[in-house]
Design a protein around this nucleic acid. Structure first.
Lengths: 214, 214
DNA sequence: TTGACAACATACCCGGTAGTATGTTCATCA
DNA sequence: TGATGAACATACTACCGGGTATGTTGTCAA
């Protein structure tokens, strides 16, 4: 049941394309990115891309899916942990933020996909593909909704509308995909300091301003 | 020194174009929006657009500038008010959020412009135009930076890096441009309830989690 | 009244891009 | 060893969209 050498080579090539496509989509957006751009950034031509992906929309969908797969993998270890909700939330949030930083290009593509879905995708069958991915992302989001509700039940989090709060929280946790850029000589510890500030801010927002000492 | 009727008509036509362009840019993004799209949404043709704006990039820049002008107008009344920083911040933040909701299309265009600047605009002289607008926006942002620092000096706000915190705060306050959509039968009070939740979340993030009772 | 100009519409050009059709090369396997 | 197919490259088409060049119409001022 193991894969042969050839399959590994093909899979690696596919992955390389996904990475290059993610960078291109991040740098220029979906519409402004041409298949030739992606190919050029690989030192290849369109033929290579269209050999692995039937269309530009499918390539983009694959990038989207790969990004979400990474997110699931990063957060899943923490979302079934026992103990207080806040602690579990912090683990999940930290993993999520670090994931945003580490796989920024893919996460930007996910963002672009969500935006495209919100304003209504172009063709009909592309819409169904995108809808499936959006639902995939929605399930991911639900993992956080659960822990948010648990935190409110425990009296730690304080918010009114769950949907709005979830939006605000993800907006915060996702934000580094827009403004983070790696600095020269930056260590893992530096990145974790940044991530901690983001998580702290989000936690403050979720706890609200009631019961504040100052 | 007053304008004649003709000038008023011309100005109104220009404004109509700006509004339609803002909606198009919001719905399809910059690259995917064609001049014909904007014209069609006005029941007109390209000629009308190019009569008022020399290029697509200039049209976009005008939308950007108009959006920022609205923001300045909305927030300026509050940013020189005396009293505690938190109170001043809340007034400014509330005005900003309501502005995001009320002029969503223009604010989305501003966002798109910032994104374009971050990844490096296309042509050389467009880049200078965009740079000027980005600086315009940066000045706007500085009004909030000042009140953030004042709030920290007063011991109310608690954060480490000012730039990161400012990013997180704006990410929160701007977020309705992405997920807010007017509901049928929605009153002004309903909108203010939403805005209040956003401002509350942001305030919680700025105050941090230290000194929390729970 | 007329001519001059603003405010558009129409018609056209041309570069770029998604997608296709057709080579070409190289490894693998019978 | 030779044939087969994967993994590309090359060449081409059709179309769309920014920009321009050129009408057309209504208005106002002298």
């Amino acid at each position: 049941m193991t894969l042969g050498v050839k399959e590994h080579v093909a899979d690696n090539s596919r992955m390389d394309i996904l990475g290059a496509a993610a960078r291109c989509f991040m740098e220029r957006g979906y519409a402004a990115t041409s298949i030739d751009d992606v190919a050029r950034s690989l030192g290849a031509t369109k033929g290579r891309i269209y050999h692995h992906f039937p269309s530009k929309a499918d390539l983009f969908a694959a990038v989207f899916r790969a990004g979400m797969d990474m997110n699931y993998a990063a957060v899943r270890p923490y979302c079934d942990l026992p103990g207080p909700a806040v602690k579990r939330w912090r683990m999940m949030a930290m993993a999520h933020v670090l994931q945003m930083i580490d796989t920024k290009a893919f996460q930007r593509a996910v963002w672009i996909g969500v935006e495209m879905h919100l304003r209504g995708a172009t063709t009909p069958q592309q819409r169904s593909v995108l809808n499936e991915l959006i639902e995939y992302r929605s399930n991911y989001s639900n993992q956080f909704r659960e822990v948010l509700l648990a935190g409110r039940d425990e009296g730690v989090f304080c918010f009114d509308d769950l949907s709005i709060t979830n939006q605000l929280m993800f907006m915060t946790l996702n934000s580094p995909i827009f403004w983070y850029t790696p600095r020269v000589g930056e260590t893992r510890a530096d990145i974790e300091i940044i991530a901690r500030q983001i998580v702290d801010y989000a936690e403050g927002g979720l706890r609200g301003t009631q019961g504040q000492s100052t």
